[in-house]
Nucleic acid binder design. Sequence first.
DNA 1: AACATAGGCAACCGCCGCCAC
DNA 2: AGTGGCGGCGGTTGCCTATGT
Length: 312
Amino acid sequence: MGRAPCCDKANVKKGPWSPEEDAQLKEFIEKYGTGGNWIALPQKAGLKRCGKSCRLRWLNYLRPNIKHGEFTDEEDRIICTLYATIGSRWSIIAAQLPGRTDNDIKNYWNTKLKKKLMGKFTPDYQGKISSFSATLSQSLPNLSQLCKDNLNSFYTPTKSLSGFESSSLPQNFLYNNNDIPSFTNQCSYYPQNQVGLMDLKYYPVKDQNMLMFGGNEASCSSSDGSYSQISYSKDVKPEEGRFQGFLIEENKKIMLDYGKINSDDPLNTFSDDHEKANGIFDNSQLQYDLEEVKELISTGDGNNMFFLNYEN
DNA sequence: AACATAGGCAACCGCCGCCAC
DNA sequence: AGTGGCGGCGGTTGCCTATGT
C-alpha cells in the first residue's frame, strides 16, 4: 500500500496563486505564524491549497525581504563558484545570497547563467569541453563504486591536504602500490588545441571530509615533465574564486596548487607557468578557471567529476 | 496578422531524511 | 527498533510572454 497523500488532491486548487490567496496566506502567517505545520495551515487559513503549495508560495514569493530581479555580477560569481564546488545544491547556494531563493537561483542558472558562461567559449572549445566532460562523467559510476568498495584502504595523509601547505606522500605511493585501489580511464585531452588521448589513473586520497582523486601517467606537455591531475578541496572559499588542485610531480611528492589554465592550451589543467592563468577568459567580465567551467557545464546531474563527499 | 518557436519562471512532483510516537 | 508523517530539496513541467518567420 502506498503512502497516504499529504492532502486531498481532488479538493485542492492548483496553478497560479491569485492576489486574494496571496493576501490571505500572508495575513495568516504574519498573524499566527506557520505553527510548524504546513499541512494543517491551509485549512486554518481558509485556503483550498495543499500545505506544500502554501509553503512554497510563502518561501519563494511572499516572505519578507525576498529579492527579485536582476542578479548582480557578484551574485553571478558566487553562484558559479559554489555550483562548481558543490553542484546543484541550490538551497545551500541560496543561503549565501540573502534574499534569493533556491528556486530563483535554479531558474536563473538553468535559463541564463549557464548560457552566459558558455558564451565565453568559441564554438570549437564548447564542443571540446562538452566531449571532455562527457568522457569524464562516464567514469563516475566506476569511481563511486570504487570508493564504496574501498573506503578503508585509501591512503590517509597524516595531515589534512585541504589548504595550501604542501604535503608529501610516501615514496612509491603513486606507483607500484597494489594496496591502493585505482581506476584507469582513457580520455581525450587537448594539448595545444589538438585532440589527443591519455590514460588517467585515479587514486583516491582520503582527506578529512572528502575523497580527492590524484592521478599520474597523464600525458603532459609541461616542460618539467610533471604529471597533473586536478582535484578539489571543499575548503576553497567562494571569494578565492578558484580551485585548488594536485600537482603530482615526478619526485612523487604531492603539493597543492591552483588549477590554472594556459592561454594556448585551455584544456590542459596545468601550464608551465603556474602563476599565469589568463587564457581565454582574459578581459572577460567573469573570471573563471577552466576547471570551474568544466564543472559548470558538465551534465548537470549534480555530480562533480572528481568530487565525492563521503561524510555520510 | 497569424502562427511557430524559444525563453523565463512559478509551481508541482516525488524522493529522502529527520523526528516524534 | 520500527513506522509513518512532515519538511525540505532538486528535477521537471507547463503556462505565459517575447521574439522570429
